[in-house]
Simulated assay, not measured.
Amino acid sequence: MADRVNAKKKQVRWLNPASGYLTGYAYTLNPYVGCTFGCSYCYVRRMPVALFKPSPWGEWVEAKPLDSEGAGFRREWRRAIAKGGVTVFMSSATDPYQPAEHAERLTRRLLEAMAEDPPQFLLVQTRSPLVVRDIDLLRQLGDRVRVSMTVETDLEAVRKALTPSAPPLAARWRAIRELREAGIPTQAAVSPLLPCSDAFPALIAEAVDRVVVDDFFRGDGSGGKRSAQLRMAERYRELGEEARYAPATADAFVHALRALMPSGVYFGQEGFLP
């Protein structure tokens, strides 16, 4: 009996039905629980997975258990593929390429299984340049994959103030360049838009041919309530940027982008859809 109970505890569901902001996908896939990038604005901070842990969000991460052959995931994956319509958002509540991935290689092992039996579409959402390590697997997925690289600002001082544990911006720009040179479909995710310079739209237009923009008021999955609970307005005030904390800021940014990019500029949910 005890063995059966332990076995149940070890069972992991990898593919979870997508809903809410990610309606349009069949599944979300989170290789890790927790995220040590710990961005100050992360909406997951207001979700049960973060609220009921003894340690603050950003200070812990758990790799989901995957046996050496990935048998559990492969079984679940094959069942989903057999049903059809497999569109996956990886990841919705963690970064699949956070520092733990260097040693765990969990995301890579999942991609290996996906490459053997490709989905209809996979979006890889990350802010980590580690994603370029897996260019070989991403190439195998061809136009069935898109890497969405978060670059919320072009100001390193803002990055350090609001997301101090996230990768430097220069490394993310290099990753975008390497991905595109390798032929991997790639977009920039200015999500959420943080205080930036007037040159930021031009930098985006030069780097990518697809970009999605979002803000704290329409993109946190709660109409701005989670962002308010995270006291983002106060964080802006501390930076002397309180005037930018308004929906009009992102609207103006999108307008500037569209003046530079005749197509490929999206706002909010539509930019993340398959």
Results as ranks from 00 to 15, higher is better:
169 L>I: 15
194 L>W: 11
243 A>T: 08
213 V>D: 14
148 S>W: 00
234 E>V: 04
234 E>S: 07
231 R>P: 01
49 V>K: 02
228 A>Q: 14
93 A>H: 01
33 V>N: 09
27 Y>P: 11
231 R>M: 09
184 I>P: 06
115 A>H: 04
249 T>L: 09
175 A>D: 14
127 R>W: 07
197 S>N: 09
3 D>R: 14
91 S>I: 00
154 D>E: 09
183 G>R: 05
133 R>F: 07
130 L>A: 11
156 E>P: 14
47 M>T: 01
43 Y>M: 06
49 V>S: 10
159 R>M: 08
219 G>W: 10
263 S>T: 14
66 L>G: 07
81 I>A: 11
104 E>M: 12
185 P>K: 03
168 P>V: 09
29 L>A: 00
231 R>F: 11
34 G>M: 03
137 L>W: 09
94 T>C: 13
166 A>C: 06
220 D>N: 03
31 P>C: 09
26 A>T: 13
148 S>V: 02
226 R>T: 05
139 R>Y: 01
68 S>W: 15
187 Q>S: 07
82 A>G: 10
220 D>Y: 01
24 G>A: 09
210 R>D: 15
32 Y>L: 13
230 L>F: 13
41 Y>H: 10
12 V>D: 04
1 M>D: 15
273 L>W: 08
238 E>C: 05
3 D>L: 15
77 W>Y: 05
179 L>C: 06
266 Y>W: 15
80 A>C: 01
203 L>K: 12
178 E>D: 12
178 E>F: 00
140 Q>M: 13
77 W>Q: 02
131 V>N: 04
23 T>I: 03
87 T>I: 06
116 E>M: 02
111 L>V: 08
273 L>T: 02
83 K>R: 15
259 A>N: 07
86 V>D: 00
110 L>T: 02
202 A>S: 13
60 W>K: 01
182 A>G: 06
186 T>N: 01
233 A>H: 02
63 A>T: 13
195 P>V: 08
134 D>K: 00
119 P>V: 03
263 S>Y: 09
71 A>M: 04
157 A>S: 15
137 L>Q: 08
149 M>H: 13
154 D>F: 12
18 A>L: 02
41 Y>D: 04
89 F>R: 00
260 L>P: 08
36 T>R: 10
23 T>C: 03
64 K>D: 14
